[in-house]
Amino acid sequence: MAIIEVDQLMKEFKVAKRETGFLGAMKSLVKREFYTKHAVKDVSFTVDKGEMVGYIGPNGAGKSTTIKMLTGILVPSGGTVKVNGIVPYENRQANAKNIGVVFGQRTQLWWDLPTIESFELLKEIYQVSHSRYKENMDTFTEILGLDEFINTPVRQLSLGQRMRADIAASLLHDPPILFLDEPTIGLDVVAKERMRTFIKEINKERDITVILTTHDMEDIEQLCKRMVLIDHGQKVYDGEMAVVKNRFGKIRTLVVDLEQHSKPLTLEKAEVFKEEAGKYWIRFNREDISASGVITQITQTHNIKDLTVEEPEIESIISRIYQEGFDGVEQPIPVKSGS
């Protein structure tokens, strides 16, 4: 059953043109010209209850704009959104009770007060019953170790502690849906791991639907079975993470460090896509040629000092989808220099 329905969602912003120079400034005082920026174009998807979806895209792709429309603080320019049966922007406060939101870049806790005070405030804001509040606090304290810092003012918390407090805060009122906007940004490896474990657990134990935006590929790989990729406001891919990995997993990268040489490196069924100070990055399809096949070709003309074969990382896959589109990727690999 779909808990989030997004259909042909659009968002356009009118942006004032800034004219340069003195005359331009004078002109814009009297009459300003605008151009339209399409932040989200015709995006549709549905999310079922209990799903965990990665909403992935480069900076400025329209991720946050979509999330803001789902939370109700932005009104779509076209299309429809429904979150748990409610149209968010029409009924913002009712929608607020159904969602929890965490922004990795900013805190929703009261900066100057001990962490516990913010929790108590949220209890009143969302009218959480005393017993439920206590239950939740106990659970979160246990998993997230909140008791280490519950009496410390938020401004003195480390980023890891702050994020733990923030995610606990977003869940106090038992929302069926959780939006996480870059929840692991800036965290160290241990803190990231802890955060992921927690997200996985609440998704499983409480059947909370999670929508996650992130730039951290580890997050996507570990947390999301499904991912929705958007770029330039448009949906590029929506489907299983595993499919993406399979489909593009055949591409391997070989990095070789060559001795001084004069001849150019020419290869069959493989191509050099980056070169830097005697180091070459070579891309090949595992089905066309094996790594040893590529190496043999190189050794015929050059001496190899060092080499490594890189496993396909989701990161490079995604960056290729960004650059070339989902369908174009399987085509013969276009040569890009220096990228």
Binding site: T71, G72, I73, R92, A94, A96, K97, R106, Q108, I125
Partner: peptide
């Protein structure tokens, strides 16, 4: 800073 805009998604 957008703090006030974010308060729009709170039920108060």
């Amino acid at each position: 800073t957008g703090d006030i805009s974010l308060e729009l998604m709170r039920p108060f």
